[in-house]
């Protein structure tokens, strides 16, 4: 089966002042249709950068290749083809819940009335029934994330990229949102790439977990999650889960230490640089 999306040797360097900072280096990964893949890595390792490349907002450095359905494409070809949910919800304060949810569909050319109707029908699924005419400022953090997710789902694309969607939520809300996301995903099979820095979350949600190295980020480890679906909340205490977690923790811990050391080096400049 040809992968839905395949990245080959993708690198991105940023010019910061007179320095060049490599954010990601030689990333290789493929997503198959219907996969739920999670990506963990220390903060600042280039996860968001990788996403920006995958949605067509950033062009990778030359030498890398992007393939969709087996075809080589240019970076900006991806604009409008992948449903992206950025780290911050970015709801528009002047739009109602309903109108925020249909924003992507509206831009996609769906007539407003039709988009609204479709959105009204799926309010229950997103737990937003009764809130359609509220404005973002009236919502809790968890609800705002659901609106942002609904907006992403309403943008009918096979591939969804979610950048730490639950990063800012408290632990209880987050656990509820994870279960809910799996339900929604199982109802409408999409290919999902999900960024998180929470290892439990990565295992609980994913078919596969990718571990990214400290900056410059590349895929350091790829770990299949052979846990059956649907997954019950108490699966996180089961032996296979704990085993996977142990493996991942070791890998991530290693990278976090490197990232931390690199940070310290930046704060206390290396004498060799002077």
């Amino acid at each position: 089966m040809t992968p839905k999306i395949r990245l080959q040797n993708i690198s991105k360097r940023f010019a910061v002042g007179s320095n060049v900072v490599p954010a990601v280096e030689n990333v290789n990964l493929s997503l198959n249709s219907g996969d739920f893949v999670t990506l963990v890595g220390p903060s600042g390792c280039g996860k968001s950068t990788l996403f920006n490349i995958l949605v067509g907002l950033l062009a990778p450095d030359s030498g890398g290749e992007l393939h969709i359905d087996g075809k080589l494409v240019a970076a900006d070809h991806l604009l409008g083809r992948v449903a992206f949910m950025p780290q911050r919800d970015m709801l528009m304060p002047w739009r109602t819940v309903l109108d925020n949810a249909i924003l992507a569909a509206e831009i996609d050319g769906v007539p407003r009335a039709a988009a609204r109707k479709r959105a009204l029908d799926s309010l229950d699924r997103f737990g937003l029934r009764g809130f359609e005419n509220h404005h973002p400022a009236q919502l809790s953090g968890g609800m705002r994330q659901r609106v942002a997710l609904m907006r992403t789902f309403m943008f009918d694309r096979d591939v969804m990229l979610l950048d730490e969607p639950f990063g800012a939520l408290d632990a209880l809300t987050r656990a509820m949102m994870q279960r809910w996301l799996l339900e929604v995903w199982e109802g409408a099979k999409r290919t999902v790439l999900f960024i998180t820095h929470d290892i439990d979350e990565a295992i609980f949600l994913g078919d596969r977990v990718l571990v990214m190295s400290a900056r410059p980020g590349h895929i350091k480890m790829e770990l299949p999650v052979p846990l059956p679906r649907p997954r019950a909340p108490d699966i996180i205490t089961s032996a296979p889960f704990v085993e996977l977690k142990r493996t991942l923790l070791a890998a991530v811990e290693d990278e976090s230490r490197k990232a931390f050391a690199a940070m310290n080096r930046e704060i206390l400049p290396d004498p060799a640089d002077a």
Binding site: G56, G80, F84, P86, L103, A104, I107
Partner: peptide, 26 residues
């Protein structure tokens, strides 16, 4: 306007005019 918001609209396939009307002017 936050450039990230412009980016998000572009991933939805929005053009210059749509970004102006739906994001920048509001």
């Amino acid at each position: 306007v936050n450039p990230e918001e412009v980016g998000l609209l572009r991933t939805f396939g929005a053009g210059t005019m749509e970004i102006l009307w739906k994001l920048q002017l509001p």
